[in-house]
């Protein structure tokens, strides 16, 4: 059953995309209603701060780590056997 359901979803990437966007939109709207009494620092007072942090952080991690791997760290899996 679950397999059929997942296959159903997998065959509809557009629908998934819009669903995902809807979730993100909900998260952005929800932020305006959150109680900010427990703020630890200035970022906690800015609406959507963690959204920007998440997106920029994620992209930066991918670009930095993948880049470093490409130019320096990447080796064949049998590197030490040679």
């Amino acid at each position: 059953m679950i397999v059929n359901f997942l296959t159903y979803l997998r065959e509809r990437p557009n629908m998934m995309k819009w669903l995902f966007m809807a979730v993100l939109a909900f998260a952005l709207v929800f932020d305006f209603f959150a109680d900010r009494h427990h703020a630890h620092f200035w970022g906690d007072h800015i609406n959507e701060f963690w959204a920007v942090f998440g997106l920029v952080g994620c992209l930066a991690l991918i670009v930095f780590c993948k880049g470093l791997s490409h130019v320096w760290l990447e080796r064949g899996t049998d590197h030490y056997d040679k």
Partner: peptide, 11 residues
């Protein structure tokens, strides 16, 4: 929600 959702967007 923000951290996870927008990490998902990044992916």
């Amino acid at each position: 929600f923000h951290l996870l959702g927008f990490t998902g967007l990044g992916f």
